[in-house]
């Protein structure tokens, strides 16, 4: 069941183009310090939220960032529209709408399962530090609320609830003179969660229904001021007996031609998602103002 382009999707794409093409002043932070906002709208890498806040707003500014992200694995596609607003490089609020097309399961199930759908709302607060300038890392805490707007399939496979909150703490440090004299970034995130496949298959399950602390990390090096390459790892729970869930990992390149536009491309290994060996390409287009 492929959904038709709905009004809000067209509006979201239009808003993204408007953000990216805006000639308005973009904010007082340095290039690339907003990371990307793929999937759920919290600033970070491709699959891991970082301690940095979205966009380029510095202490007396606020600003909007929007992103469209598409992931194509062997059997599935994931579309995500995300918005993120940063207040004063202190508080970031974010929202996203994720649609996971599982039409390829139709033959196995004997019926068309439709899309998995999740909306997310997030808040992140920077507690201390500046990723680039202070000796200590930048540290932020965040809450990510996920809500399934289609819950039939998650409930059938054993998910216990259609909405829940993740809590995370993230530390990000940038070394101006990193390995091989290039600028480098390391982020470590600890997340308390019971999400199945980042919430797309609900929260909690028959194997486990309690929170677990998961380890996530991103490491990147800057080829020049505009291009970063790196890898990421995201540990995931395994709550459902119906289908084993694997940790995620990716290698990515992020290009920041200016403070209005960014593009993140990745090759992601998402392991088993009901069907085994899901890997494929991932691309995110982002606009900020």
């Amino acid at each position: 069941m492929h959904s038709k382009p709905s009004g809000w999707r067209i509006a979201a794409l239009g808003a993204l183009v408007a953000l990216a093409s805006s000639s308005a002043y973009a904010g007082g932070r340095l290039l690339a310090t907003g990371g990307g906002i793929p999937l759920a709208g919290a600033a970070g890498g491709g699959i891991v939220p970082w301690a940095v806040l979205s966009g380029y707003s510095a202490d007396e500014e606020h600003g909007l960032t929007g992103a469209y992200t598409r992931v194509e694995t062997d059997d599935y596609t994931l579309d995500a529209f995300a918005l993120s607003y940063d207040f004063y490089n202190r508080v970031e609020v974010s929202a996203s709408r994720q649609t996971f097309d599982i039409g390829s399961l139709t033959p196995a199930l004997g019926f068309d399962p439709g899309d998995l759908k999740q909306d997310t709302f997030g808040v992140k607060v920077r507690l201390t530090g500046d990723a680039v300038f202070t000796r200590r890392p930048q540290v932020s805490v965040g809450l990510m609320h996920g809500k399934n707007t289609e819950y039939l399939i998650p409930s059938v496979v054993g998910s216990r609830r259609d909405s829940d909150n993740d809590f995370y703490v993230a530390a990000t440090k940038v070394w101006l003179t990193g390995p091989l004299k290039h600028m480098a970034l390391l982020n470590i995130t600890l997340r308390s969660t019971r999400a199945n496949q980042i919430g797309l298959l609900g929260f909690g399950g028959d194997l486990n229904d309690s929170r677990q602390t998961m380890f996530e990390m991103s490491a990147a090096t800057f080829v020049n001021r505009k291009l970063a390459v790196g890898f990421e790892y995201r540990q995931k729970p395994n709550n459902l007996s119906f289908a084993k869930e694997d940790d995620w990992r990716d290698v990515f390149a992020a290009y920041f031609p200016n403070k209005h536009f960014a593009i993140v491309a990745a090759y992601a290994d998402l392991g088993s998602i009901v069907l085994p060996h899901q890997s494929g390409f991932y691309i995110s287009f982002e606009g900020s103002r």
């Binding site: 932070r29 510095a58 202490d59 500014e61």
Partner: peptide, 9 residues
Amino acid sequence: TEIEFNAVV
């Protein structure tokens, strides 16, 4: 401010 500091950087 941070904005001014970053602008000089």
